[in-house]
Simulated assay, not measured.
Amino acid sequence: MSAGMPRSGRSARETAGLAARLVVAGVIIATSCALSGALAPGALASPQTQISAASEQTLETMLTADQGAARTDPAVRADEISRRFLGTPYGADTLVGSATEPEQLVVNLQRVDCFTYADYVEALKRADTREQFLASLIDVRYKDGVVAFQNRRHFFTDWAASAPAVATDVTSSVSAHAIPVTKNLNRKDSGGAYLAGLPVVARTVSYIPSGQVDSDVVGRLRTGDYLGAYAEDGGLDVTHVGIFIATPDGPVFRNASSRSADDKVVDTPLSGYLRTVPGLVVLRPVV
């Protein structure tokens, strides 16, 4: 599990604020880095940016390509940016940090899982430069802009439930058949916690049963909406995340798939995907 700023026309005051946030976060740019010395568990001091030379090059390429999409509408921008990841290999456990290991700001564009894929797409949507991307990634991945394991948005609905909000939960507004369920996130139904060192969070999660996702519901979705596969376990909100894209050939679920037949970012026909999950949670990005 892992899991806004204007994209253009940034004022001098906004630029100064961006630089200040990067300094406060203690971001240190390096092609390969590791924290040196021992830090106390959960320490917030000087998190580093872990980014490879290959990811640096990919980021530069994507940001350059994004200049052409900088003035388009949000749906077009979401489609264009997310499409650039198609074919990127699936890779789990790329983030660094735990209750006992200091958090690092990881940028790995060579391998993504469903949550980090969403992180990078959303951060790229908000950025025209490398510095804006890093600052946006902090805002997207972490609560209150603090790079720390305890502040990481580990659950999909954290994007809507914690500040600064990345998205709005529109599940109930796109379907009258949405079902609210009270969950205790991070507490397994079988006992124990999913993530050690993190509290249990009570939250009402609404989902649309897959059988109720008809043409009317699909018609209310927008390209760029984030779709979560509803989890039946009371300790999880969703089990998988992807992006809704309306294409000329029909709606697709663009996602970093761990299926052996895929093992990369792919476009999966939404109708087929719905047959494999209990239902959908829909979050609409705020930018």
Rank of each mutant, 00 (worst) to 15 (best):
E56G: 09
D267L: 02
R152Q: 11
V282I: 14
E60S: 12
F85E: 02
S98Y: 06
A45V: 15
Y226F: 13
L195A: 10
D225T: 08
T61P: 01
G145F: 03
V265E: 00
L22F: 01
A167T: 12
G228R: 12
D237R: 12
A196D: 14
S98W: 05
D214F: 04
P251F: 01
L270G: 13
V217S: 11
G68W: 00
T168M: 05
T31C: 03
A202Y: 01
Q48S: 00
Q212N: 13
L39F: 08
V106N: 09
E131N: 15
G211A: 08
D93S: 13
L86A: 05
G272M: 03
S11A: 01
H240Y: 07
D158C: 03
L185E: 10
F155Q: 09
G272V: 04
Y117Q: 08
T88D: 00
R203W: 01
S162E: 06
Q110G: 15
A30H: 14
L35F: 07
G91P: 15
Y194L: 14
L124N: 10
G211F: 02
Q48L: 08
L280P: 13
S36W: 05
V181W: 02
R153K: 14
T94Q: 15
V96G: 02
A25C: 05
E56M: 10
S136K: 09
A229F: 10
V170T: 10
M1W: 04
G9T: 07
A54R: 10
S36Y: 09
P164W: 04
V241N: 08
E14Y: 03
G219K: 12
A70C: 04
A161N: 13
R275Y: 00
Q212G: 02
A92I: 08
D249N: 12
I245P: 05
W159K: 06
V201E: 14
G68H: 09
V213Y: 01
M1A: 11
S190A: 15
P199G: 11
D139Y: 05
K264V: 00
G211W: 06
S32E: 13
A256C: 11
R254E: 01
Q67V: 07
S82R: 07
G68T: 07
V281H: 08
T58H: 02
D189Y: 04
G37A: 05
E14K: 00
P251E: 00
Y120P: 13
F244N: 10
Y194H: 15
T64D: 10
L134S: 02
G272S: 11
R126M: 09
G234F: 00
T88I: 08
G26H: 02
R275A: 13
G228I: 08
P102N: 01
K188L: 07
A261E: 13
N108P: 12
T94E: 06
L44K: 14
G279K: 13
S98L: 01
D267W: 00
D144V: 02
A148P: 14
L18C: 04
Y117T: 14
A19T: 10
D128H: 06
P47L: 00
N108S: 10
Q104E: 12
V140R: 10
L39Y: 08
V218C: 02
L109C: 03
